Amino acid sequence: MSRLLAELSGPATARLLGPDSVLVVPTGAMEHHGPHLPLSTDALIAESVATAAVEEAAAHGLDVWQLPTLTYTKSDEHSWASGTVWVSASTLLATLVDIGRSVATTPARRLVFLNGHGGNTAMLGVALREIRRLHGLLTFSMPAGVQVAGAGGADEPDEHGLGIHAGYGETSLVLHLRPDLVDMSQARRSVPEHIAALTHLGFNGTTAQFGWLSNDFGPDGVIGDPTGASAEAGKVLFDASIRRAVDVLTEIAAFTHDAPR
């Protein structure tokens, strides 16, 4: 049986879904990813991981279903670049909450956003509570692909922990998933190494963060080094992404706010 909810009829959703059903919405973006990657990179990774993870989780007995990918999201950090199609923070928040409202009309009570774009993270955090408060669903968000910065090993560049956009990990994933969409002849290093030397300021998990646009660090809008990326490294990351997603979905399926008695 297909686990794609959009392939079911309306009456079938009412029959097949129940309060323990987990509905997964991949969230990506349509945004500039340098001259070497497609605009669809984030949506491609999120949807690919979601499809594989939902199928594997269902094979292990989880009542899990996949909704269509949300692609037009908050990508204003790349608004300077041709081809980026983005919505405002208020539009994305309203859209996420409306998706929750719609899911609440089904018997399902667990909604997961599997996110492939960092620019969506803040709005997803707000949306989880809004949907919970307004529509009573159990709400969750989780990252899509496992992406690591190149650490300078024999087969990878050293991104100094700053490979956050169109760099080694992301390029490797797309090389694995859709090598026909990657032009490695256009891949160039753009690592803001001066930031790596700072103690408190940075991108992810640092004490303090800063507002930025992707072309603040170079005209290509790349933050990282894609030059050492490979399909082989991408397969390792993709397989790890699926394993992590299945593990998270397993916990989500069993999650309750109530402490065990």
Rank of each mutant, 00 (worst) to 15 (best):
S2C: 11
S2Y: 13
R3K: 15
R3G: 09
L4A: 14
L5I: 15
A6Y: 10
L8T: 00
S9I: 00
P11H: 12
T13K: 09
A14M: 15
R15W: 08
L16V: 14
G18E: 11
G18A: 15
S21C: 10
S21W: 11
V22H: 07
V22E: 00
L23K: 01
V25W: 06
P26Q: 04
D42H: 01
A43M: 01
I45S: 01
E47Y: 05
E47P: 00
E47L: 04
V49A: 06
T51K: 15
V54M: 08
E55L: 15
E55N: 14
A59M: 05
D63F: 12
W65Y: 13
P68T: 08
T69G: 05
Y72H: 14
K74S: 11
W80C: 05
A81E: 02
V87G: 14
S88W: 09
T95H: 14
V97I: 14
S102F: 12
T105G: 11
T105R: 15
T105P: 03
P107K: 11
A108R: 09
L111Q: 00
L111W: 08
H117Q: 05
H117N: 04
G119Y: 00
G119M: 01
G119T: 03
A122L: 10
V126S: 04
I131E: 11
I131H: 11
L134Y: 06
L137P: 12
T139K: 08
M142Y: 06
P143F: 02
Q147V: 14
Q147G: 04
G153N: 09
A154S: 13
E159D: 08
H160Q: 08
L162C: 00
H165W: 05
A166K: 04
E170L: 05
T171A: 12
S172G: 01
L173E: 04
L175I: 10
H176G: 02
P179Q: 07
D180S: 10
L181E: 09
V182F: 11
V182M: 09
S185N: 12
Q186H: 14
T199H: 11
H200V: 00
F203E: 00
N204V: 12
T206Y: 06
T206E: 02
T207H: 11
W212M: 04
L213E: 10
G218S: 07
G221P: 03
G224W: 10
G234Y: 13
K235M: 06
K235P: 00
L237Y: 12
L237N: 02
S241I: 07
R244I: 01
V246K: 02
A253K: 10
A253L: 10
